[in-house]
Amino acid sequence: MTSLPEDSDGTGPAAESDADEAEKIVCARCGTTAPGPRPTWTCSVENGIRQYFCDDCARSNLRAIEGRLDSAWW
């Protein structure tokens, strides 16, 4: 995490807004948002990019996920 010069200790308003943005997770397929990491969501790294998929999208595409197909194929 980087901080602005006025927030050198990482506790100012800028640090709080960075933490809020970092914890918001969006499903890469349908756009559903979650306020933080969900233990039931699926995480996939494709082309070096971490993507999260909600329960519904993961269940609908379970065979493709287990077959390690990129999400572009499903």
Rank of each mutant, 00 (worst) to 15 (best):
T2A: 07
D9M: 07
I65G: 07
M1T: 15
A19C: 03
A22I: 06
G31H: 12
E66Y: 07
D70I: 09
D20A: 02
W41L: 07
R68L: 09
G36M: 07
G48Q: 05
A34N: 04
S17K: 11
M1A: 05
G67N: 15
E6G: 04
G36W: 02
G31W: 15
R59V: 05
G48V: 02
C27G: 00
E23G: 08
G12D: 01
C43W: 04
S44W: 03
P37N: 06
N47T: 09
A64Y: 01
T2R: 08
R29P: 00
L4T: 13
R38N: 14
Y52S: 14
P39M: 12
F53Y: 05
E66A: 05
D56W: 15
C43M: 03
A58K: 01
L62D: 15
A14V: 04
E21N: 06
R59P: 00
C27W: 00
D70E: 13
A14E: 06
G67Q: 07
L69I: 10
E46C: 05
N47C: 14
S44I: 15
W41C: 02
W73D: 06
D70P: 08
V26I: 15
E16V: 14
C57I: 00
S60M: 04
A34M: 07
C57D: 03
E23T: 10
T40E: 12
R68D: 09
A14C: 07
V45H: 01
E66T: 10
C57P: 00
V45P: 08
T40N: 15
L62E: 14
A14R: 02
I49R: 05
L4E: 05
P13W: 02
D18H: 01
L69D: 01
E66I: 11
A15H: 03
E6K: 09
G31S: 10
T33A: 06
L4H: 14
A15D: 05
C57E: 08
A64P: 08
E66G: 12
T40R: 12
Y52L: 13
T11Y: 02
I49M: 13
V45T: 02
E21A: 14
T11R: 00
I49N: 12
T33V: 10
P35L: 03
R29C: 04
T33M: 05
A22C: 08
F53H: 08
A64R: 11
I25C: 01
T2Y: 14
D9Q: 11
